[in-house]
Design a protein around this nucleic acid. Structure first.
Lengths: 186, 186
DNA sequence: GTCTATAATTCGATAGAC
DNA sequence: GTCTATCGAATTATAGAC
């Protein structure tokens, strides 16, 4: 079903688009239900394809998972950079909307303990994304904050969101998110 | 295979022991690999039994998961109360040993995102355990700290440990744990 | 209460036609 | 590259003997 226009070279572009569709479908599903509760069949259906086509793009489910995390992180960063003031970014991150995970979603918070059960490749991607998160946090401040302060803020954001998502008490969760906002002084 | 001594009434006690063995086996396995990567068969084998006996103690895998979290939390609390000074408890919690999860393990940190994918019953147990964690934190201090301060400290402990476990960089993880310790002022 | 046996699914990955 | 078909493996839960 590949679009093949030899004169225009549409094929390569098309494959990139399909790969992107798979990655977005995967990120959305993995973020909601974790690695094990998402099947390749489901990912491909949401991308408008069938199972068989999967292995032309990724060599395993685990590789897809790692790439989906990397991709979701890049897009989450891209979305964040529309709100330049750092305090506003923190508010957006620690928002009720983010907790519900309907729009943007940060894999660092949504998949913490999920990742800690995965192989080294996946955990390497997570680690790299986390380092980027911390670096961007310290570079976004006017006074150069210490690396330790950036780490603390990162924990309050990522950890706070992760815990808020686990709680089955909306009121307590909101209270928790506010407390984390207050604790972050940048 | 039940021990039935009608005169002594050993049977009920025996069932309690078996249930406890299952719960401990489950907690250890769930904490390491999450809900989906642990089979009932495995849990029962580690408890010295076979699959079929499982449903005489729990009505589903999900119920076992909830009970295992509750049980692990109770035992984790019991272990913590051997170290009265609150600062020492924080150090123990944010230790490299805890991150490796070989001895005690806190389900709040080890299963955060795992729980956020489970049903209301499981999330209710998690929420109740979390509330107890926060309450005990504020009551352990000499000056009555605010509820907000207790929430912030809880996030730094639980969230910090959860993230440290996901990272595939021991040095960075240790740095993170130290940063969380420093941020907690009780 | 515990065992063996099995029903009923589900899923990851591969093979081969187009 | 994408499809259909299928293998092989694993899992939850139940049934029935002891």
């Amino acid at each position: 079903m590949t679009k093949r226009l030899k004169l225009v070279g549409w094929s390569k572009e098309h494959k990139g688009q399909v790969r992107n569709q798979i990655l977005e479908s995967a990120a959305r599903l993995f973020m909601r239900r974790g690695f094990d509760n998402v099947s390749i069949d489901e990912v491909m259906q949401n991308a408008g394809l069938t199972r068989g086509a999967f292995y032309a793009h990724f060599k395993s489910k685990s590789e897809l998972y790692a790439e989906a995390i990397r991709d979701a992180a890049l897009k989450s960063i891209h979305a964040q950079e529309k709100a330049p003031p750092i305090c506003e970014r923190v508010e957006n991150y620690l928002s009720v909307a983010h907790r519900k995970g309907e729009e943007m979603a940060c894999p660092l918070a949504f998949l913490v303990s999920d990742v800690s059960q995965q192989n080294d490749t996946v955990r390497d991607v997570y680690t790299k994304v986390f380092k980027g998160f911390v670096t961007r946090l310290s570079e976004s401040t006017q006074e150069n904050i210490s690396n330790q302060q950036a780490l603390q803020s990162a924990v309050l954001m990522i950890g706070g969101m992760a815990i808020a998502r686990a709680l089955n008490d909306d009121s307590l969760a909101e209270q928790l998110l506010v407390a984390c906002q207050q604790a972050i002084d940048l």
